[in-house]
Amino acid sequence: MSELPSEHADTSATPLSPNRPGAETNPTQDAVGRRSRRRLNPSLLVGGSLVCLIVVMALVSFVWTPHDPTLVNSATRLQEPSSDYWFGTDKFGRDVFSQIMVGSRTTLFVGFVAVGVAAVIGVPVGILAGMVPRWFGELLMRGNDLLLAFPALLLAIMFAAVYGASTLVAMIAIGIATVPSFARLIRSGTLQVLRTDYVLAARAAGRGPFAIGTRHVLPNVSSLVTVQASVSFAIAVLAEAALSFLGFGTPPPTPSWGRMLQESQELLFLAPRLAVFPGVAIAVAVLGFNLLGDGLRDRFDPKLDDRR
């Protein structure tokens, strides 16, 4: 909107094109921007690979694991890593590697449902808050911000206190706690889209708010949704791990990385490796989704190139 009039004004007033701030250095900035877009985006690459690794591990675990991850066997208790037990065994004689594999299912499942809940609530709320009158949008955001005072883990503990601990409760609690960050981001994206010329044109053509919301705003904020989903996934993985660690997450015997950590704690002096493997798995998953989010952000908006 603000671009057009100034363009006209300047060409008529002076023979030289206007010197907008930074215009003089633009060539180099363009060159840098172009270069980075062409260059392989390392965050996207590393993050994508790590996420793929975990997804593949989860998928393979449905058809094959080296051992039954829930098989208790007193004969094989606390074995060191070997060709038979790649990551060794825990105090019940269960194979750690198999548990890690099956645990990735829990992690991904909780993450998917939690992010799904957050997106299904957060995206419409965000778009709505961007399209309603300003004061109402601000009010919605105030309420939204209030929810930020309830982090995912706290909400999940509250839910667990009332409804008892279960995977379902954990997923919903984490999902609800992730709604505010979605809503806030999508609202600011919506406000930006609404200022564009094509929305103005659509309005001028008599399109109703619903059509503008679904046809113009939603497709244009979808990249934001993708980025936020990836980042929220990382938060969900962290929350699930902490929750299982505290004993409020996935109940036994279903393997979960957080509970593996908890079980390892009493054996830290005996077998610290039992803490290391699930710990690394959690870190890899969180790192993967964080990097994937960063990479997607760079991909969608090269201007933000070297921030964050």
């Binding site: 030289l16 094109s17 206007p18 010197n19 907008r20 215009a23 003089e24 250095t25 633009n26 060539p27 180099t28």
Partner: peptide, 19 residues
């Protein structure tokens, strides 16, 4: 000169403040 003619870069080079 017009934008892109290098005049501001010349000035910044004098100051040693090139980006």
């Amino acid at each position: 000169g017009e934008s892109g003619s290098g005049k501001s870069l010349t000035a910044l080079a004098l100051m040693g403040l090139l980006p």
